[in-house]
Amino acid sequence: MLAELLLAVVYGLLLLGIHRKVIARIQKRPGPPIWQEVLHILKFSFKTTWVPATASGVLFVGVVIIAIAIWTAALLVVIAGGSLMILFGIYMLHKIVEHGFGLSSGSPYGKFGGVRSVISAASEIPLFVSVSVIALFTGTLMIDEIVAFEGANGPLLLLAPPAAIAMYLVILSKMPFGPFSIVESKELVSGYKTEHFGIWRAGLEVCNGLKTFVLLNAFVLVFIGALPLWLLLLLMLAILVSLSFVCALTPMLSPFDSVTVQMIITGLMLVYAIVVWVMI
């Protein structure tokens, strides 16, 4: 269990580093080394750290702890083959964490990052549709039972491709440098992360590593099925590289367009869920 946790943090960070490298190579830049995100954590964790004078201290520190705690919980749910509902809940709670990061410091940049995170709340609904379509197909929400179902009936990727696309878009909307990453766009300095420096930022990066690993792992597990570890890690890498291509080739949308596109996707997914529900 501890080994999985450490693997998740390090491999998740490595994936984020590869993400940056692939984007850079597509854009004909050399790009940072792939272990850059691990170096980032080390760098931030050695910096002098305090709580800003205007910040709400308990919340400022508390959200960092909560951020790591919820994604640790998410990883354990995936390992234990627990309920997809809990995973969905944790994904939504990450939004609260973003609000907490953005609002707790009193900085205007952080605040606008937080407000943008509120308006892009529509990005969670495709995940819910994806979860409910999976429930309609398999009759269960427990990950281990879904994996067993796939062992008998073939991967859900082929049975319910739109649900896979919905979850793919959900992961895309959480990737840095993507079309939907308006919460950390550069006109807001770093958006909701702006005021969390030093060890707080290092803690946030640990959470980001865990989050990337959990989301990609859950995607492979739910839509392809149980695999040996090396193949699982390889597939996660392949999905990540495809996400990097999308991120490298699409500009960041304006907040209004980002929300509109997410709403359209949500609408399409709801129609698909209704069609599946009527057919089954």
Partner: peptide
């Protein structure tokens, strides 16, 4: 527990 932040 927490005191509110001061907005800048």
């Amino acid at each position: 527990l927490s005191r509110p932040e001061r907005q800048v």
